[in-house]
């Protein structure tokens, strides 16, 4: 089974703030990490490989420093990794990103399953998985919480609001996984040794023979026009006094509001 796992390098914390003086993102001291949601995708890919044989290829679109994250993916069980990096890819929205990933996956050759995390930690859109499926013309299932059986197709559990659906999915296909699916392992010594020396090819737009109008900002349908800190106005009142008094006061206020 040839498995491709799509990964993204993200800031290690979402606790970013906008400097009120300069109106810019404060990025100091923030380390980049493997998108936590993608760790479940990688782990599931490695587990499937251990179950059915095959190879796991990790791919990521990002700046050159994302190579470090791909090495981590190898230490966690990926057999190989490819970085898609080019100035032309900058500013991509989910449409342009999924297009670029799709071209790279086609270049990789025969692929049976593509696994993505449910969403990224920074952008939070969860759109690249389904858009990628569409770009590749493959069937797609989101929010997979369990892979039950693999024969010709796969039997999966999909998390929906009211419970779980059992779905049969023919391969090749694209899935996104939720954190309930597994507990990602930590690296292995052999993996770390392999990661240190593994070649990580960098594919540029030229190598992908890609339509330049469809990548990066140029290929993006959406554009960010403004970023700002969420406004929060303190409308509240802190109730004073001993607990007994606070509670009494609170209940009378709720009574006034017609709630109790």
């Amino acid at each position: 089974m040839n498995i491709v796992v799509c990964l993204k390098q993200v800031p290690g914390t979402t606790e970013v703030k906008i400097d009120p003086q300069t109106n810019t993102l404060i990025r100091e001291g923030i380390l980049n990490i493997l998108n936590p949601f993608d760790a479940y995708a990688l782990e599931e890919g490695v587990r499937l490989k251990e179950r059915c044989g095959g190879r796991v290829t990790a791919i990521s679109m990002g700046p050159p420093q994302a190579e470090e994250m791909l090495r981590e993916a190898i230490s966690l069980g990926a057999d190989e990794a490819v970085l898609l990096s080019d100035k032309a890819f900058a500013g991509a929205d989910t449409l342009a990103t999924s297009y670029t990933l799709a071209r790279a996956i086609e270049k990789l050759g025969q692929t049976d399953l593509i696994i993505c995390g449910r969403q990224t930690f920074d952008g939070d859109t969860g759109q690249v998985g389904p858009e990628l499926a569409e770009m590749l013309g493959l069937p797609f299932v989101a929010y997979v919480s369990k892979i039950e059986d693999i024969n010709k197709g796969m039997h999966l559990q999909r998390m929906v609001e009211e419970g779980h659906e059992i779905i049969e999915l023919p391969l090749p296909a694209v899935i996104t996984v939720v954190k309930e699916i597994n507990v990602p392992r930590l690296p292995s010594l052999r993996g770390l040794a392999k990661a240190k020396s593994a070649p990580i090819p960098v594919w540029t737009a030229e190598e992908l023979a890609i339509d330049m109008d469809k990548v990066g900002l140029k290929g993006s349908a959406t554009r960010v026009v403004k970023v700002f800190s969420p406004q929060r106005v303190n409308r509240g009142e802190i109730l004073q006094g001993e607990p007994e008094e606070q509670v009494k006061n609170l209940i009378s206020k709720l009574g006034d509001a017609g709630i109790v």
Binding site: D93, L95, P130, A133, F140, V141, A142, Y143, V160, S220
Partner: peptide, 20 residues
């Protein structure tokens, strides 16, 4: 879960933008 799963596919097929 439904909207987040199938709207991106609609958008991608139409090659238009989608904001989540």
């Amino acid at each position: 879960p439904m909207g987040r799963s199938f709207m991106p596919r609609v958008a991608a097929r139409l090659r238009t933008g989608l904001t989540a």
